[in-house]
Design a protein around this nucleic acid. Structure first.
Length: 289
DNA sequence: ATGGCTATATTCTATAGA
């Protein structure tokens, strides 16, 4: 098989993002795309994008809702054994559209929108942790060739935050959340972007407000985790910061990994690192809550 | 600047996001 490009993108309403999504597909030519926060029911998604995706050679699997959440997988390298939801995971209170999985080009691909958590110790925070524990069990029982993609809503380390002090006591950084992520990594999953850019300033989310993107004040919460069998095939892995620029962007940027067939473990040519403008300047930081 | 922006559904306002 040729090189396979897999991407994940929290689009923050696929309806609002059509003018960004379709040109991005044409430019980046991903073979598999995991989408989150589509915020659209499945029939409305198909009406909106079915023809445009079919023209581009994509099949798609959907798990959407009318208003919130919503995930999808687009694939032009096969889309088999589609499963929606996370077996054993709780709802809030109803089951939310936060997970869809499919086998694409021989790899089990998961498109995930992990619950936000809102405030530590809240019911939503407990829901997040229980949901992540159930996800871990599903991954443990699943195929060994797997990619866990999506808006994980956890900053793996303080290096994934523009200002760790601003996040003390907030969700996305608490020890139980990081432990839940670590429990997944302990199954053999590798954070391919951080592994490729171990010391770079790389974020995937920037708040819409206060010029946060312009000042590069963000968080890295959108991840691609590759199983031990797949990670050595990663020849490039990066965050597509360009997609956060310009008119009408999502507040998240896509994450992309290129997989080669060759299982030699060599990390070959890669794209240049994203620029980090202003990182040496004194910046005025927004108040923590 | 204590949610500052953007999205949702609904409407003269609330909820969600991270």
């Amino acid at each position: 098989m040729e090189r396979v490009r897999v991407a994940t993108w929290n689009v923050n309403s696929v309806k609002q993002r059509v003018p960004r999504l379709l040109p991005w597909l044409d430019q980046r030519q991903p073979d598999v795309v995991c989408l989150q926060e589509t915020k659209l029911a499945d029939d409305a998604f198909t009406t909106l994008l079915g023809d445009a995706l079919e023209e581009r050679g994509y099949e798609f699997a959907l798990f959407g809702e009318t208003q919130w959440n919503g995930v999808a997988i687009l694939s032009r390298v096969g889309l088999d054994d589609v499963a929606v939801g996370v077996a054993g995971a709780p709802g809030f209170p109803h089951i939310e559209a936060r997970a869809v999985a499919a086998t694409c080009g021989g790899v089990r691909v998961h498109s995930l929108y992990v619950p936000n958590g809102r405030e530590p110790e809240s019911d939503h925070y407990k829901y997040k942790l229980e949901w992540l524990a159930a996800l871990r069990d599903v991954l443990e029982a699943g195929p060994s060739d797997a990619l866990v993609c999506g808006d994980i809503n956890i900053a793996p380390t303080d290096a994934d935050l523009f200002d760790p002090e601003a996040y003390i006591g907030q969700t996305h950084v608490t020890e139980p959340e990081r432990a839940a992520l670590q429990a997944i990594k302990a199954l053999g999953f590798h954070d391919v972007v951080r592994d490729r850019w171990p010391t770079e300033r790389i974020f995937s989310y920037w708040d819409y407000r206060a010029g946060m993107f312009h000042r590069d004040l963000g968080m890295r919460i959108d991840l691609i985790l590759a199983s031990g069998s797949v990670a050595p095939r990663a020849k490039a892995a990066w965050i597509d910061r360009h997609a956060r620029k310009g008119t009408g962007p999502s507040d998240h940027a896509p994450v992309i990994v290129d997989l080669d067939e060759a299982p030699d473990g060599d990390i070959g040519p890669v794209v240049p690192p994203p620029s980090s403008p202003g990182s040496k300047k004194k910046v005025k930081l927004p108040q923590a809550k």
